[in-house]
Nucleic acid binder design. Structure first.
Length: 919
RNA sequence: GCCCCGGUGGUGGAAUCGGUAGACACGCAGGACUUAAAAUCCUGUUCGCCGCAACGCGAGUGCGGGUUCGACCCCCGCCCGGGGCACCA
């Protein structure tokens, strides 16, 4: 009987489905384990072989934990709101709901063919009203909360209004407007509109006017992490800064908790670093520089107050509010020309070419300690959005200031002596300060505290912490997203009562933008006008639904709550989260923030969603290239192409065997290739190859369905793991797949003889057989636990080789082998389990216990070395302690001869390795 | 520029705690079975030297130093590759 993987896989997929074999209960006395994949956006392109890499890893881990006796939650769903479906609708006239549905069906079929153990009864889709009802509900919770900086947690708005009526906002400065101060009496005197405006500046989800990233081509604003180098992440369209009314998430209030939380989770170093950099916390000072001959002052932010005596000029951002006031008559034409120039430059130009540019304002400030006049300049290298939008320039210590000073011929005061070489700024913190008055002779690091104390004592400055992270834009002028449960009445945002949720997305044929930069929903007057107000017509961004989906899987059918407290208490944190690094600063930060808010408000019992995160690598494509002689229809084989001037054509990888092109299918591929002719080498046409991103554009996409059809899901699963560490990027390469397939066939043949059929014996295994299997099991459980699946697959091969050398067909050994293999090749294991007379699903078997006695050797022969040079062999009991070994070794006559009466420096006993005498 | 991660045979990659470097697999070479092919099995495969062979010797984990009885692993200085950030004061 041959290994008929197609029949076997179909049979067991159906059986598991019918039995609901992967249904998970929230009610179990087994310990829980929550294993989660980042859910996919169901794109029209379907899965390629890169996508399942992480899914296979998490599936193996889930099945492993299940056999180990855990109640494993391992769900799957779809992040089904988003821009591409909407663009597809605009281009093809197919409504997003329809195309999304089709895509999901296709994804589901592809996933099922690989044999994942998802509990499909828990599937979620972010675009289902039964799901986004709760996304809207959580939004309202955010809207009804503010961040108490004293307690470091979110609280209800009602508590804030109570505080305001008792004591004003003295204890709770406004995060949206630092200058806002009011007493209880003033609060009492305010009208409702004014009060609501103030409250809005405290809310965790708030509406404000701000500079946003506006993408004209997509017709929407984008969050900072959706903009890369001045163009949109999706589509690469230009993005400009624009002032708009927008919803925001006040994630900046959580900056510290997001940083602290990183110490409690297992993320990779690079992931933690990316998040840390994005949050960008820095410690420094704000210092006021009084204007010479005026009352006003310029407040700068610096992380290096220790260099205050090296300040040669101040620089303010072109958008700084004091700019008009600073420009003197004498400098007016020059300064205004500069401002005009800055204005004419797009965001993208500013990013792309960082030229040194600026203008003198004509104004001077006074140095707070020396009283010297300090010229004030304007330059676009100072960003309006960070710190105070103004800096003190210390050219000897800061490279940008140095370049600026050189370019405009400004003086450069040296406060670090020989550490400054006159041509390059030196940002050291270890120099001894000179020319620095009361800081002279101090090392910069120590001077920091001294100057800060002095600044605070004299009231010209104070310690200040800053963050690079900005509040996250939370509205999109699009259709295919969650509607906001908000109605505007008299300029006040009124939340809809929970009973009116969900606010369903109304059907809409035409998806063109509404008037005045509003989204398509603005084109539906009947929907827009609601109970004497107008609905918010923006929709929520893609990350809204994905910020909390891991909670919904715990209790997916709950119509009363987003997730019952009992369910979230039972499942708790995600024990293992698997996904790509591309969500490092988007999804992962947002979902961490939402989790913290839900925790603060008492809805869940934990405040970090993901205990351990593994980032799977990307699988690249191996493209095939044909060379067309320029201006002809003749193609030349790769080995001969250098003799001609050629153009490169990406050939679909399915038409190539290795590098040899199937010229027939190539001709039929596209009409323009019908009359192609070929210059062959050795009778065949050889393509060139190149590793690049797997993409339709390069025709190098390999569909997992093809691989599964040819080798079976079990081979596919094991091979993707065998390719190398899960975390590593690698090209798709089928070279080694035969080896894995051979392993499965070999295993099959051990049970199933071609003529005789089943060959197993009931005999008791001998020690060597037990030893082989237990050694293998131990290694595999270690490897699986630490996510090293490539080495685990190797261990299976080693185990099988040893057992076939022993000619072991004993059922007692082989059933253990199958149980351990199940996570990796579930279909074959299930089939063989039943074929060997077992009943019940192998999925429900307990993981075999390793009998340690078969792994332990009672005594072992060790090489004994003198200073690392092996001199003799000695047999030592493995139970012996280091001290006993030392005594035995030193008592040996040979050893005594070597030592010649002198005591050794030490005796090194390396268990299982060697004994070394160091003299 | 700054930060992080890596560099091991012809190839993908092992070596988990500083202790036999190159597991396992691919590829390749040779062989068995076969009319032939496929499939399967066996042998060899880091490099160099000596040799019929066994054995032996020498070198070897990007480069140069160091610590150690012992270094792919730790330290210092370079080179190369990948990723992230990039006027964040």
């Amino acid at each position: 009987m041959e290994y008929q993987f197609r029949d076997i896989e179909r049979k067991w997929q159906e059986a598991w489905d019918n039995q609901g074999a992967y249904r998970v209960s929230n009610d179990s006395n087994r310990p829980k384990c929550y294993v989660l994949d980042m859910f996919p956006y169901p794109s029209g392109a379907g899965l390629h072989v890169g996508h399942p890499l992480g899914y296979i890893a998490s599936d193996i881990y889930s099945r492993f934990k299940r056999l180990k006796g855990f109640n494993v939650l391992h769900p799957m769903g779809y992040d089904s709101f988003g821009l591409p479906a909407e663009q597809y609708a605009i281009e093809h006239g197919i409504p997003p709901a329809v195309s999304t549905d089709n895509n999901i069906r296709n994804f589901r079929a592809q996933l099922n063919r690989i044999g994942f153990c998802y509990d499909w009864s828990r599937e979620v889709r972010t675009s289902d009203a039964s799901y986004y009802k709760w996304t809207q509900w959580i939004f309202l919770e955010l809207f009804d909360s503010w961040f108490d900086r004293l307690q470091g947690k979110a609280r209800r708005m009602a508590e804030l209004t109570e505080i305001f009526s008792k004591e004003g906002n003295a204890e709770y400065p406004c995060p949206g407007d630092r200058a806002l101060h009011f007493s209880a009496a003033e609060w009492a005197s305010l009208d409702e509109r004014k009060r609501q405006d103030i409250l809005m500046d405290y809310r965790l989800a708030y509406c404000g006017h701000g500079e946003v990233n506006w993408c004209e081509a997509l017709g929407t604003v984008l969050a900072n992490d959706e903009v890369i180098n001045g163009v949109s992440e999706r589509g690469g369209h230009p993005v400009v800064r624009k002032k708009l009314r927008q919803w925001y998430l006040r994630i900046t209030e959580y900056a510290d908790r997001l940083l602290e939380g990183l110490h409690t989770v297992e993320f990779s170093d690079s992931m933690k670093e990316m998040q840390t950099n994005w949050i960008g916390k820095s410690f420094g000072a704000e210092i006021d520089f009084k204007l010479d001959g005026g009352d006003a002052h310029i407040r700068v932010y610096t992380t290096r107050p220790d260099t205050i005596f090296g300040v040669d000029f101040l620089v303010v951002a072109p958008e700084h509010p004091l700019v008009p006031y600073l420009i003197s008559d004498g400098q007016r034409s020059e300064a205004e020309a500069y401002l005009e120039y800055v204005n004419s430059r797009s965001e993208r130009e500013r990013m792309a070419e960082k030229k040194i540019s600026g203008a003198f304002t004509g104004s001077y400030c006074v140095h707070p300690f020396t009283g010297n006049p300090i010229p004030v300049w304007i330059s676009e290298y100072v960003l309006a959005g960070y710190g105070t939008g103004a800096i003190m320039a210390v050219p000897c210590g800061d490279e940008r200031d140095h370049r600026f000073a050189l370019h405009f011929g400004l003086p450069i005061t040296n406060i670090i002596g020989s550490h400054y070489n006159g041509t390059d700024a030196n940002p050291t913190k270890d120099a001894v300060l000179e020319e620095s008055d009361f800081l002279n002779g101090l090392v910069m690091r120590e001077a920091m505290a001294v100057v800060l104390d002095r600044l605070e004592a004299s009231g010209v400055g104070k310690r200040q912490v800053n963050y690079k992270m900005r509040d996250a834009a939370f509205s999109r002028q699009r259709y295919w997203g969650e509607p906001f449960p908000i109605v505007w009445k008299d300029g006040i945002a009124v939340p809809l009562p929970a009973g009116e949720l969900p606010v369903e997305l109304p059907p809409l044929e035409e998806l063109h933008p509404g008037p005045g930069g509003e989204g398509p929903l603005a084109n539906l007057p009947d929907w827009k006008h609601y109970h004497g107000g107008v609905r918010e017509v923006n929709t929520m961004p893609g990350y809204a639904g994905s910020s909390w989906y891991f909670l919904r899987y715990m209790d997916p059918g709950n119509g009363q709550e987003f997730c019952s407290r009992a369910a979230s208490d039972y499942w708790g944190q995600v024990d293992l989260y698997v996904g790509g690094t591309e969500h490092a600063v988007g999804h992962l930060l947002y979902s961490r923030m939402w989790t913290k808010v839900l925790h603060d408000l008492g809805h869940i019992g934990f405040d970090e969603p993901f205990r351990r995160l593994v980032n799977q690598g990307k699988i690249g494509g191996d493209s095939r290239i044909a060379y067309r002689i320029r201006g002809t229809h003749q193609f030349v084989s790769a080995g001969l192409k250098d003799n001609y001037e050629t153009d490169e054509i990406h050939v679909d990888v399915s038409m190539v065997d290795g590098v040899v092109l199937n010229t027939g299918s190539f001709r039929n591929w596209r009409p323009d290739l019908h009359d192609a002719t070929f210059l062959l080498e050795d009778g065949v046409y050889r393509c060139g190859s190149r590793l690049e991103k797997m993409s339709k554009r390069y025709h190098n996409v390999v569909n997992p369905d093809e691989v599964v059809a040819r080798y079976g899901a079990d081979t596919f699963r094991m091979y993707e793991m065998f390719l190398g560490p899960v975390e590593q990027d690698k090209p798709w390469d089928t070279k080694g797949i035969e080896g894995v397939h051979r392993f499965l066939k070999k295993l099959w043949r051990m049970f199933m003889h071609e003529e005789k059929g089943l060959v197993v014996s009931q005999e008791s295994p001998i020690d060597a057989e037990w030893k082989a299997i237990y050694k293998m099991i131990r290694k595999i459980e270690e490897d699986t636990e630490r996510f090293s699946f490539n080495t685990a697959v190797s261990q299976f091969m080693i185990g099988l080789n040893e057992l076939s050398d022993l000619k072991c067909h004993k059922i007692a050994v082989l059933e253990k082998f199958l149980i351990v293999l199940t996570p990796y090749a579930p279909h074959m294991c299930e089939e063989l389990w039943h074929a060997t007379g077992h009943s019940g699903s192998i999925l429900d078997q307990p993981w075999p216990t390793v009998e340690e006695k078969y792994l332990v050797e009672t005594s072992k022969s060790y090489p004994v070395a003198l200073n690392g040079k092996t001199r003799m062999e000695m047999t030592i009991s493995l139970q012996a302690t280091s001290a006993e070994v030392e005594a035995i070794v030193l008592a040996d006559p040979n050893v005594q001869k070597w030592l010649d009466g002198k005591p050794p420096k030490k005796v090194v006993f390396v268990p299982n390795r060697m004994i070394n005498i160091v003299v």
